[in-house]
Design a protein around this nucleic acid. Structure first.
Lengths: 225, 225
DNA sequence: TTGTGTAATTGTACAAATGACACTATCTAT
DNA sequence: ATAGATAGTGTCATTTGTACAATTACACAA
């Protein structure tokens, strides 16, 4: 037995995906006190012998019915102390960000209403979860500027317009089409295929795919500001 | 009483400063098993009711005799799971980076030989502490490119040559004197004073100081690569 | 077949930042 | 007065950033 007693260890998860031309965040409705009935990030306790990553996977599965294979990029964000505002007293929460595509949350045993919300129109949130989401959003904004992290939010084959829309949804600002294409193609992160996407009564769009799925530091920034 | 048992929570600290034209890291020699006698980062257990930051301060004081006022910038780095390689079994370690100037570690009750080592010539280290230091170094390298974090490593008044040497020590590569000065002065992070530093048998160097001590995102990068 | 609507695709010109490069200025010590 | 040492400064070529509009290729309807 240790002479010390550790604070309570928790994990909270910010799962994001693109839908309706917007970046969306997964929220659940809390089943229990505190903050019963309020929206919150999926989260829970870490048990001894379980890594923080394993705990993150377990909690997403049990609280939102999301299997870990659906998250195509998982990254630790930050570890928050939860002192004031948390009725359970002092604890430490390790937060993770997960990115995916066409994730459909299903009802879990322990929670109700797992659902995606557009990041710019979130409901009121329990704890300090609004700040955690803002932090995750900033991290993602920054990360897409020097990595190919966006690949985790897109299908394997995608058009340049889809790619640009993804950047616009993440960065929350419009980008110039010609400059975006010129810059992105110069980065050697993607290559064209011989396939086209036929969408409607207009010219078909060429499909592209990423050169490597793994995250790599890009040689230059995407940011055209 | 909680139904869950948490993993052991620890904090590890990467304290860095500049000396002898090199970036240096604070190490201690472990007094106890495991890894008794080996070099390691200062670290210890977090106790219930103590924030990770407060724990970091307490541990630096007790293990290396360093008061928190000496750290002019403290930033959380990452939270590591310590599974394999750690004889105590699974634990979670929150790591912090602290930057300061002319820190003189003193012997603490619980440890021996707190001492600074040049980051490029470190001894063999306990646990995965070599990786943690590499991570901290990468973070610092990246951070000085878009913030004024270097202010925490320099005296209030400094010469442009001192500033450039700090960047060279952090980035581990030489910089062009004229380009460095031109770029840094264009960032509006520092301003000149009317004081000069007389050093030896040569032209005195003008002293500069930072416009604001707080960390700010710089408008442009310093990196001239 | 032709025309229309819709989104995809492409290039240029100007401004700004980057990066390579070498000499002069000012002080101290002898 | 001179030598030695570090501080301080400018130009030019290249690359990158950014604003901006016309043409292409398809589907569908008339």
């Amino acid at each position: 037995m240790s002479a010390y007693q550790s604070p309570i260890l928790m994990v909270d998860s910010v799962v994001m995906q693109l839908a309706n031309d917007a970046l969306q965040v997964l929220l659940i409705r809390r089943a229990n006190e505190p903050f019963q009935g309020m929206y919150a990030l999926p989260g829970g306790y870490i048990v001894a012998g379980e890594t923080t990553m394993a705990s993150h996977e377990r909690i997403l599965r049990s609280k939102a019915g999301i299997e870990k294979q659906l998250l195509r990029l998982v990254e630790q964000l930050y570890t928050f102390d939860t002192v004031a505002g948390d009725p359970r007293g002092h604890g430490v929460s390790v937060t993770y960000m997960g990115l995916g595509l066409e994730i459909i949350p299903t009802l879990g045993n322990e929670t109700q209403h797992p659902e995606f919300f557009a990041i710019n129109t979130l409901p009121q949130l329990a704890y300090d979860h609004a700040e955690i989401i803002a932090y995750a959003h900033e991290r993602l904004k920054s990360k897409v500027n020097y990595t190919n992290a966006v690949h985790a939010l897109l299908p394997i084959y995608f058009t340049l317009t889809q790619l640009q829309s993804a950047y616009e949804a993440i960065l929350c600002r419009p980008l110039d089409k010609r400059n975006f294409r010129k810059k992105f193609l110069s980065l050697d992160l993607i290559h064209e295929t011989n396939e086209y996407q036929r969408d409607g009564a207009h010219r078909p769009a060429r499909l592209f795919c990423f050169n490597a799925a793994r995250l790599e530091r890009s040689p230059r920034s995407f940011d055209e500001r």
